[in-house]
């Protein structure tokens, strides 16, 4: 299976990354220029187990960790010609690749539960796009339309809603100001909101 490739697996390579940076950079150069499998095996032998234990710690799952090792080392094999020793050491370059792959993997893992649409974040403000392909999209209520509906409220309810939702007053403050009981403010607010809600739903 490993024809022409030596896997030096007898003893662990305990050198620090910076102590073998020059050697690894030379191997990367050979891989880039000659697609040298023996040189790649040296790089792989040093970094693959290190990437695995980093990935295990980060992802907590053996299968995902090995996927990260495989994707990272594939990138090293494919993109060795993009390595530039002047910009950084081989370990920095390989760590950067692993980091980016990890971000992508997390995005994909999260994608499965993704369900929020952007309209949720911009409630009501959304106007319909003038795109003929999207006729099925339900009509969105615009801010202006909310304003129009608001204007159609009875004056007494409008005054209470305006004071609370636009001027930001408390219900007690509104009661004191209009010289009416707090209970009346509460019921007017409730009625007005219910009315607006009904109108918005009819509008739908």
């Amino acid at each position: 299976m490993l024809i022409g490739i030596t896997l030096e697996n007898n003893k662990p390579d305990v050198r620090k990354p910076k102590d073998c940076a020059a050697e690894m950079a030379a191997h990367l150069d050979t891989v880039a220029k000659e697609r040298c499998k023996a040189s790649f095996a040296k790089i792989f032998g040093y970094f693959a187990p290190r990437l695995r234990s980093y990935a295990l710690k980060q992802m907590g799952n053996e299968a995902i960790a090995m996927e990260l090792v495989q994707d990272t080392m594939s990138n090293v094999w494919q993109k060795a010609h993009l390595f530039n020793a002047e910009k950084g050491s081989p370990s920095t370059w390989i760590f950067t690749i692993a980091r980016n792959i990890r971000f992508d993997m997390l995005r994909k893992l999260q994608n499965r539960k993704e369900d929020i649409c952007s309209d949720d974040m911009w409630p009501v403000l959304c106007e319909q796009t003038a795109d003929p392909k999207e006729k099925s999209l339900e009509e969105k209520v615009t801010l202006q339309q909310v304003g129009e509906l608001f204007n159609s409220l009875p004056d007494k309810q409008k005054a209470v809603i305006e004071a609370i939702y636009i001027e930001g007053k408390s219900q007690q403050e509104v009661a004191d100001e209009l010289n009416i009981p707090l209970g009346t403010v509460k019921s007017r607010t409730r009625l007005a909101l219910q009315r607006l809600k009904d109108m918005l739903e009819t509008h739908d």
């Binding site: 896997l7 030096e8 697996n9 003893k11 662990p12 390579d13 305990v14 050198r15 620090k16 990354p17 792989f44 032998g45 970094f47 693959a48 187990p49 290190r50 695995r52 234990s53 980093y54 370990s91 760590f95």
Partner: peptide, 9 residues
């Protein structure tokens, strides 16, 4: 990161 994990292949 790569120093902490000097394992055998």
């Amino acid at each position: 990161v790569f120093d902490e994990s000097s394992q055998r292949l």
